[in-house]
Write a protein that binds this DNA or RNA. Sequence first.
DNA 1: GCCACGATACTCGGATATAAATTGTCCGAGTTTATTAGG
DNA 2: CCTAATAAACTCGGACAATTTATATCCGAGTATCGTGGC
Lengths: 162, 162
Amino acid sequence: MQIAKGVEWTTHICTVIALLPPGRGLAVDVLADFFEVPSAYLSKQMQLLRRAGVVESVRGKSGGYRLAKTPDDITLLDIVLAIEGPKPAFRCTEIRQNGPCGLKRTDCKRPCEIAAAFAEAERVYRDALKVKTLASIMQEAAVNAKPEHLNDIGNWVQQQLP
Amino acid sequence: MQIAKGVEWTTHICTVIALLPPGRGLAVDVLADFFEVPSAYLSKQMQLLRRAGVVESVRGKSGGYRLAKTPDDITLLDIVLAIEGPKPAFRCTEIRQNGPCGLKRTDCKRPCEIAAAFAEAERVYRDALKVKTLASIMQEAAVNAKPEHLNDIGNWVQQQLP
DNA sequence: GCCACGATACTCGGATATAAATTGTCCGAGTTTATTAGG
DNA sequence: CCTAATAAACTCGGACAATTTATATCCGAGTATCGTGGC
């Protein structure tokens, strides 16, 4: 059970493109260099975020990616669901219906207690990610980071704009 | 991000071998038939549970698997950790240390806010699985199931004992 | 000087390989049990 | 009849494939920009 690397990468990247002036974007190659990750694969992950409505893309010479919503409206759960897909991690295959003592389909109206327990655990997991917005993450980071580092990032972003 | 099927299988199986008389066990082949799952692969998963101290194995003619602890002392988290391993699902690769604005190692004493958020989410996830003991699952199932079905399972278990 | 057109450079986007993890299988190591021969 | 050695049957256990998923890559589709020629 491992979360795709794209979740880590794209989350970090969202905190960077959130600093862009309105209407501007940054290219995948540039963002990939910023974190030293493979750009082609990152491109694939950013497409997933775009389809989920987290970011927007602009083609052409001075195009790139930018946030599709305000950092307040983007949660870590949004990013995880965009990359990993919506289906839960625990797969109930209804094996209680199998074998010599298998239940009939009609007697399986309620989910089995094991599946219910895992569903509940995933619910609280998702809730924990839902309350973490991109804005809150950035705020925490701003509080903990050295001011000079924040400046470095801000300046770097400015430099990338043509 | 998917949980191995072995988690579902072995959890169901634990609820069955919990019904055994003290000191008795059931063979993998028998348990595999009960849920119609591949026995050789199930064997692999049961070995993981044994190494984690959830079940005990007895070799030889009338051997098999039985619980190593009381159902009160076995949680769903124990089973998940036994099958999936102890490492968290979210992998922080410290990409904040990469690239032109990368932080120095010495400035990364605290975990980054993104990794911290995912760690917190996994903590509540594990806590939710930790409070679900095998005993509590079996109790819920006993309440919801038809009495005849419980009898069927009990009788089947008895029949398997030589 | 200004505008329209075309070429160009740059970007995303999906189709395509490679690596890794999960899933599934097989046969040998180790025990218990039943059998059998001897006392 | 009882005991003990022996053989057999049955079980787990780890080493060995096949399949799916995740990771990584490449090249074509599309668009804004820049250059150029004409008006």
